[in-house]
């Protein structure tokens, strides 16, 4: 951290006590959200999501695979996340960091718990199922990767084509049906800095926050996944109030998802 960062961090903390965020947002306000689908036509599904300056691309490929031994008649869902070195000066090359693994697993849990994918419809024949690979590519980091990643993964899933399997061959081109999906899941992430709780923390807020909480919910306000992170704590009252905010703010996220067109 350079001297300018140190001064900026002190400034952010100071103005938070007066109820002001550095970019002028309210505490419970998202940055502007842009989403588009089909950005990578070669992939079976894809979506790019910007939350402020955070930019995430999700790509989906669907391959013929063998089923998991405990679920012989269901297809597979595999979610990975890459914090690409081009996305931030703080990201290094090398195998996935614990942060990347946590990100992928939290997105995975939300999608799985909400049953967005009908894994039974991915069965082809004995010992052959479809595997749906969701790769989350972080292209520019400015905080709140959890919400941007879940949003891009779900956006891509809702606009993915289902390849055909004919005569031992995978057909990925031509007129193909849509991948079968049910409903939606979105997540809201909060950061806590010196006791102040903020929705959608940006990169500089994340660098000084003590605690993080991600809550994923569906359109019926069932909580589908939660993940607390970092060294700080939350009281039960704080968590309950963040659940209420999530129910409120997820409406906007779902309307982003339902407005998307291929």
């Amino acid at each position: 951290m350079g001297y300018i960062d140190i001064v900026k961090n002190e400034y952010i903390k100071e103005i938070l006590h007066k109820g002001i965020r550095d970019d002028g947002r309210k505490f419970m306000q998202y940055r502007s959200i842009q989403a588009s689908v089909g950005t990578i036509p070669n992939a079976e599904g894809s979506a790019e999501v910007d939350i402020g300056n955070t930019k995430v691309l999700a790509g989906i490929k669907i391959d013929v695979d063998t089923p998991m031994p405990d679920k012989p008649e269901e297809g597979n869902l595999i979610v990975s996340a890459e914090l690409l070195p081009l996305a931030s000066p703080d990201y290094d090359i090398g195998p996935p960091s614990p942060a990347a693994i946590e990100l992928a697993r939290v997105v995975d849990r939300g999608i799985r718990a909400a049953n967005i994918l009908d894994t039974q419809s991915l069965f082809i024949e004995k010992d052959k199922v479809w595997s749906v690979f969701i790769d989350i590519y972080v292209l520019n980091y400015d905080g709140n990767l959890f919400d941007a990643s879940t949003l891009s993964a779900v956006a891509a899933l809702l606009h993915t084509r289902q390849p055909k399997y004919e005569e031992e061959k995978v057909i990925r081109e031509g007129t193909l049906p849509k991948l079968k999906t049910n409903g939606m899941v979105t997540s809201c992430t909060f950061g806590k800095i010196n006791g102040n709780i903020l929705l959608d923390p940006d990169g500089s807020e994340e660098s000084i926050m003590d605690t993080r909480l991600t809550i994923a919910n569906d359109e019926n306000n069932n909580i589908k996944a939660m993940q607390k992170g970092l060294h700080g704590t939350f009281s039960i009252k704080e968590v309950e109030s963040m659940i209420d905010t999530t129910f409120e703010k997820s409406k906007d996220l779902r309307s982003v998802l339902s407005s998307l067109e291929n």
Binding site: I223, F234, V239
Partner: peptide, 18 residues
């Protein structure tokens, strides 16, 4: 009584969490 670790997957309501 502060929460140090919190993870969840599945489906619950707000009341279930409390």
């Amino acid at each position: 009584g502060d929460i140090l670790l919190l993870q969840m997957d599945g489906s619950i309501t707000k009341e279930d969490f409390s």
